[in-house]
Nucleic acid binder design. Structure first.
Length: 158
DNA sequence: GCCAACGTTGGC
DNA sequence: GCCAACGTTGGC
């Protein structure tokens, strides 16, 4: 499924980096650094392609919600924050010769007029199999099915 | 390769 | 702040 996915969802804590921060970034673009989970890394490194659409999700906030859409503007390259001893995401086992962690660049497409909160997503039958809604789901980069993406877009457009 | 201990995520 | 669920680590 991941191999064919052209739609994704990434989580971010808005206290740390929000979609509004992305809107203010140069070229409305950011490198998605700091992912330190192998499954999430593999999706970024192996499967995310230029132009793929990415739902932005705000987590650890009230309410947690899907807040907008970005697109992949650069495919995977090594996450340099893993080499910086002063960075929170430093990993001494990642080297420039053999990088362990990767990231993509994301460019903002649009911010939803109304964020779609988690409890609302849970009530939508078409989304019942979303990874995000799975009990205990913690993946910070995850594939989204086309139909799920389109359902969310329709809701966001009112 | 098993699994207990530990650390992290993230909703509530 | 709590805690369930999950991922990683490391001893054996």
């Amino acid at each position: 499924m991941a191999k064919e996915s052209r739609y994704w969802l990434v989580k971010t804590e808005p206290d740390c980096f929000s979609i509004q921060d992305l809107a203010k970034a140069p070229k409305r673009t950011t490198c998605w650094s700091g992912v330190r989970n192998y499954q999430a890394r593999n999706f970024m490194r192996d499967d995310m392609k230029l132009g793929d659409q990415v739902l932005i999700y705000h987590s650890s906030c009230n309410p947690p919600a899907v807040v907008g859409v970005a697109k992949v503007s650069r495919e995977a390259y090594p996450d340099h924050t893993s080499w910086d001893p002063n960075d929170d995401h430093f990993d001494p086992q990642s080297t420039k010769e053999n990088p362990r962690w990767f990231m993509v660049d994301l460019q903002l497409e649009r911010i939803f007029k109304e964020p779609i909160p988690l409890d609302r997503l849970r009530k939508i039958p078409a989304l019942k199999d979303m990874e995000l809604l799975r009990r205990g789901s913690r993946l910070s980069v995850q594939p989204v099915r086309k139909a799920e993406f389109e359902t969310i877009e329709q809701i966001a457009e009112g």
